[in-house]
């Protein structure tokens, strides 16, 4: 039995979190999903695990526009919390913003593995999921 692939969904849209979780569960039963309603809650989680790598997710789907701490703020804090985190977690921006300044800012973060504009489709998620599983297999 392979280890379950862990997803962190960070988004202030409650319904989006529900729907995406449902889609991911439909793709594979072997997923573990954790949701956060804003960047601050998510970063509090990472502060809480105190570097325990087993508590790191495999993948983060990060919204940009959120209250209290937005996506960019989350990335900055995560970066200072865990330098080189991109080697351990694949982080994807999933946002409704197709603004150029957001896209431009995205290229400045090496920690980002990709950028999706909402709505993210089921087959996109499937591809994403498979990539993760494959890379996990290789590393094993």
């Amino acid at each position: 039995m392979t280890r379950a692939t862990t997803f962190h969904l960070i988004d202030d849209d409650e319904v989006y979190l529900f729907i995406t979780s449902k889609i991911l569960e439909a793709i594979s039963p072997n997923v573990k999903i954790q949701t956060f309603q804003d960047g601050e809650l998510a970063i509090n989680y990472f502060k809480g695990i105190e570097g325990n790598s087993s508590d790191f997710p495999d993948i983060i789907l990060l919204d940009l526009n959120m209250p209290f701490l937005d996506g960019w703020g989350f990335l900055k804090e995560l970066k200072t919390l865990y330098p080189g985190i991109e080697k351990r977690i694949k982080i994807y921006v999933v946002t409704s913003s197709d603004r150029e300044d957001d896209l431009g800012l995205a290229t400045e973060f090496n920690e980002l593995s990709g950028y999706y504009v909402k709505p993210i489709k089921k087959d996109e998620l499937e591809t994403l999921f498979r990539e993760i599983v494959d890379s996990n297999l290789e590393s094993n």
Binding site: D13, V15, Y16, I19, I23, S96, S97
Partner: peptide, 21 residues
């Protein structure tokens, strides 16, 4: 424009997904 796209597009997408479900 941004507000519309961000705040309206997402719910509509969600509605689409939910109705599908």
């Amino acid at each position: 424009n941004y507000l519309i796209s961000h705040n309206l597009k997402a719910p509509i997408t969600s509605v689409t997904n939910l109705t599908e479900m």
